Amino acid sequence: MKQPGGGASRSTRSARSAGSASVPRRPRAPAVVRHALLRWIVLALAVAVWQLVARAHGSVYFPPPAEIARHAHALWFSGPARHVFLTDAAVADILPSLGRMTAGFALAAVVGIALGVAVGRSRRAYALCNPVLQFARAVPPPALVPVFVVIFDFGTPMQIASIVFSAVWPVLINTAEGARDTDPLRLEVAAVLRLTPAERLGFLVLPSALPRIFAGLRLSLSLSLILMVFSELLPGTANGIGFTLTDAQSRSDLLTVWAALVLLGALGYLLNTGLLAVEKRLVGRGRTPTV
């Protein structure tokens, strides 16, 4: 015997289940914790294998990670608490490098996003500039160091210029591609609503281009770190992580060389993690409908 309204109740339940299925579910907290623990376990296993192999080999050229960590702590992170545990060597080596990299990356991001939006929003400008952009991107940045030395001489301006030239192209090209991919229908709706160019840029172009922009920023961040180290390997540099590498190599201080390499890897990981966190927040907002 059928119950009255049974069909309606079944259709209601099916509609609810369809609606709940269309809504993306966030990963549960235990799954996120398990994933994070798995990553740290893999890292710990890799370090343990390194420790065992290095101790078994007993070579001065391949020190165990425990010795590298103790040396790095004594060299850079054993300072007083009022100085955030940074030693004088850390202030002389790490902070100048981070300052140069931050300045170069910030300039590359601003210039790349501004020019990328301008080029991407004009078909004619994109068609004219794209071959030049691809050519400039293909030029190895170290090959232009002699040019930068002639223009800026050795020192911080030359180092920042080399970082900017290397890091600007991924941001510029990805931003241009993202601006070109803006939904034409949304642009037509914006024209009907009579949005100003600034409103179209802020509400449509930039939000739709954010995923491509951050893809370019991640590439630029890694290039900035690489060019920061390379520029500090050149003559005329008196501080920085790259200078520490060359100075330690000249003194056959292999522990300092390994400590600098591990420090660079840790800095790259932390900076990339911070940029991914910013991307997760902003790209999520940028994908919400604004018109």
Rank of each mutant, 00 (worst) to 15 (best):
Q3K: 13
G7T: 14
G7A: 09
G7Q: 15
S14V: 04
G19M: 10
G19R: 13
S22V: 03
V23W: 12
P24V: 09
R25F: 06
A29K: 13
A31G: 06
V33L: 14
H35M: 10
L38Q: 12
R39E: 02
I41W: 06
A44H: 07
V49W: 15
A56K: 12
G58P: 06
G58Y: 03
S59G: 06
Y61I: 05
A66N: 01
R70C: 05
H71V: 15
L75E: 13
W76Q: 05
W76K: 10
F77Q: 08
G79T: 13
G79Y: 07
P80F: 10
P80A: 14
V84N: 08
L86S: 05
T87E: 05
A89R: 13
A90R: 03
A90T: 04
V91C: 08
A92Q: 14
D93N: 08
M101H: 04
M101Y: 00
M101S: 05
L107P: 00
V110K: 07
G112E: 12
V117Y: 02
V119I: 15
G120E: 15
R123S: 15
R124Q: 14
A125W: 07
C129M: 14
L133K: 06
P140Q: 08
P141H: 08
P142D: 10
F148D: 01
V149K: 00
V149D: 05
V149P: 00
F152Y: 03
G155H: 01
P157I: 02
M158I: 02
V164W: 02
V168P: 03
P170K: 05
V171L: 10
L172S: 05
T175E: 13
A179D: 03
D183Y: 11
P184L: 09
L185V: 08
R186A: 10
L187H: 03
E188S: 07
E188I: 01
V189W: 02
V189G: 03
A190I: 08
L195I: 05
T196V: 06
T196E: 14
P197G: 13
A198C: 11
E199S: 15
E199N: 14
R200N: 11
L201W: 06
L204K: 06
L204Y: 04
V205Q: 02
L206N: 09
A209C: 05
A209T: 01
L210V: 06
I213T: 11
F214R: 02
S222C: 12
S224N: 02
F230V: 15
L233P: 05
P235E: 06
A238W: 08
I241G: 06
T244D: 04
L245F: 11
A248T: 00
L254K: 01
V257I: 13
A259R: 07
A260V: 13
A260G: 01
L261F: 10
L264R: 07
A266G: 09
L267I: 15
L267A: 13
G268A: 13
L270N: 00
L271S: 02
E279Q: 14
E279C: 05
K280H: 08
L282P: 03
G284P: 00
G286I: 02
G286P: 02
